[in-house]
Amino acid sequence: MQELALRKLTRRWILLILGVTLVGIFIFSLLWGRYPGLGFISWQRVNQDELAKLLIFNVRLPRLITALLLGAVLSAGGIVFQMLFGNPLVEPGFLGVSQGAAFGAALCIVFLGGSAVLLQGSAAVFALAGLALSYLLARRIRYGGWVLRLVLSGIAVSALFSAGLGILKYLADPLRQLPEITFWLLGGLSSITWKKLLAILPAVISGLVFLYLFRWRLNILALSDEAAFSMGAAPKRDRLLLLTAAVLPTAAVISVAGMVGWVGLIIPHIARRLFGSDTHLTLPAAMLLGGIFTILCDDLSRSLLAGEIPLGILTSLLGSTIFIVLMISRGTKVHR
């Protein structure tokens, strides 16, 4: 008992350290960048230089808040999906959400002119349509358990949207529309403004708060339906509520940031390494780790080269590297 209490206290201290680290990295990132060369902007210069003040508060601040929310949403969604499906290789875009958002964005670029408001709305609508189609198709499948049916329907819906995206890329103007679609698919935060951030804030905050408050439900729903029902849960209803709470903010952030991969896959693995499978601590830890990871990747994307590197490239590169290290590390066991 004493050892268990000590372990819980240690994990809470690690959680506190992660929170302090996130605040420190956020402040560091706010002052770090190219103005005019690569380096820090002092607070004294911010007070004296009107252009530096505009850069900090009108460009970097909304961008960094969006990066923080992007990492927190994708990581929390990854925890939810991996716990509910009992599969460590799924992530928030698993039920056709990411491919639906990509199809919606491409559709807007090709046929609706590609304005920022229309693109954001179209991506969000088709992301939610991906979830709805996956859920309705899963209800129609006549074999297998509920989780298996959702997996199969998610694969089918993602394939349909991917095919539609391929058709739209084929129809797009190769000189004007196709580069815009490609850039959106690579992901990035260079176009973030306060208006875009405020537009997604209600969905993101409500989704994250719901997941945080009901994170203990994930431990119950990770069990079989019979065991979960015997503990007072309604498995199908609770899974649908948690999936919706994970997908809504995911659709919102994807609509403004584009496709950013690997965050929702790799961060939950790191959080479980540090805090175990109990989502009481693992889910908030994943939110903090996701925010740290995405902000650092965004720092690299805007400072490594004179031109900005798409965020999705860096998250995929770093995420896949970390994933390989975790898989070959001595702490990972493979059962045959």
Rank of each mutant, 00 (worst) to 15 (best):
M1E: 15
G19A: 02
T21S: 15
I25A: 04
I27G: 06
I41K: 01
D49L: 06
I56P: 00
F57P: 03
L74R: 08
G77Y: 01
V80L: 07
N87S: 08
G93C: 03
F94A: 11
L95R: 02
A102W: 02
F111E: 07
G113A: 07
G114P: 04
S115K: 00
F126E: 09
A129V: 12
L131Y: 12
S134Y: 04
Y143P: 00
S162R: 07
G164H: 02
G166W: 05
Y170G: 06
P174E: 12
P174G: 09
P174F: 06
R176Q: 15
L185Q: 14
T193Y: 10
K195G: 13
I200D: 15
L201C: 12
L208T: 13
D225H: 06
E226L: 10
A227I: 10
F229H: 13
A233P: 03
A233M: 04
K236M: 14
K236F: 14
D238W: 00
R239D: 07
L240V: 09
A245S: 10
S255D: 12
V260A: 10
V263I: 11
M287D: 13
I292D: 09
I292F: 03
F293A: 05
I295L: 12
I295Q: 08
D298Q: 02
D299A: 06
L300S: 08
G312I: 00
I313Q: 06
L318Y: 07
S320M: 03
I322L: 14
I322A: 12
M327R: 08
I328C: 09
S329W: 06
G331H: 15
K333A: 13
